[in-house]
């Protein structure tokens, strides 16, 4: 394979830290079971992504294994926050790496690796959403697993938080995938609009507009949902106290 000129490491943009769950993918929490050589390559700060691509193209398997180790958590979490299901997010991440491997020859060393790779992940995730759009109306299966078992002695705060996470997913699912992709990348993964724009192949102004619109829409749905939940809880409390009719009776009255 042809060798490409090495860019100045200082000029190559570094990947964003991402959410706490994805953070540390390149340092402390590399997956277990990897060989020492792969771990060393993945954790070496002086070996940038471009160098790993170069070595992979030269036939070094460990270099690609290190690249996967560096980015698999970011790939999985970003896919998970867009598609909302563990199995599908894992498939998206896996497919993204397969496509990356097959197209390493096309990698432009002048551009940042993570922008290129995130684009592959986001495209696959959005394609997945389009495919299932008509197939599923509403699913919070994986987020329901975030809810702790009520039989376990856990604090009410944890229960509330888990419930809130499930509600966030309910809201996210209602938002257009294009807007969802931007607010997930900005508000969860911490990418700036300047970083998001090339990933989604849109202009910086479009990224900002989608972020603006996405936050507005999210807030509207969120307020409505929280209001509905609070209202339902209040009715339940009143029904249990015997002061007012219960939820069912109240609900039927509204109609």
């Amino acid at each position: 394979m042809a060798t490409a000129p090495r860019p100045d490491p200082a000029s190559v943009p570094q990947p964003p830290a991402g959410p706490p769950a994805a953070r540390g993918a390149s340092d402390v929490s590399l997956p277990g079971g990897l060989s020492a050589a792969v771990l060393q390559l993945a954790a070496a700060p002086q070996i940038d992504d471009g160098e790993l691509v170069r070595r992979t193209r030269a036939g070094q398997e460990d270099a690609f294994a290190a690249l996967v180790a560096r980015y698999q958590k970011r790939a999985f979490w970003i896919a998970f926050h867009v598609v909302g299901r563990v199995e599908e997010a894992r498939d998206v991440a896996q497919e993204a790496f397969v496509r990356l491997f097959r197209s390493l020859d096309k990698y432009d060393f002048a551009r940042s690796f993570y922008t290129w790779f995130y684009r592959i992940v986001m495209n696959l995730a959005i394609d997945y959403l389009r495919k299932i759009k008509s197939a599923r109306s509403s699913s919070i299966e994986d987020f329901v697993t975030l809810l702790p078992d009520e039989r376990e002695p856990r604090g009410s705060q944890a229960l509330e938080r888990a419930e809130e996470n499930a509600q966030v997913w309910t809201v996210l699912e209602k938002i257009d995938p294009k807007l969802r992709a931007v607010i997930v990348m900005r508000d969860i993964h911490g990418l700036s609009c300047r970083e998001i724009a090339p990933i989604l192949r849109i202009t910086h102004a479009t990224a900002r507009w989608r972020l603006h619109r996405g936050r507005q829409v999210f807030r509207e749905y969120w307020e409505r949902l929280v209001y509905d939940v609070d209202e339902r809880r209040a009715r339940q409390v009143r029904a249990q106290a015997g002061n007012e009719p219960g939820e069912l009776e109240n609900g039927s009255c509204e109609q």
């Binding site: 180790a69 698999q72 999985f76 888990a162 809130e164 966030v168 969120w222």
Partner: peptide
Amino acid sequence: ARKALQQFGRATPDGVDEEFFTDLHERV
């Protein structure tokens, strides 16, 4: 709303642990 979104980003679903990522690495 933004805070709830960020909180959501920190949650980890069941079954997603180090073993999960080792398996993903091997699959890739």
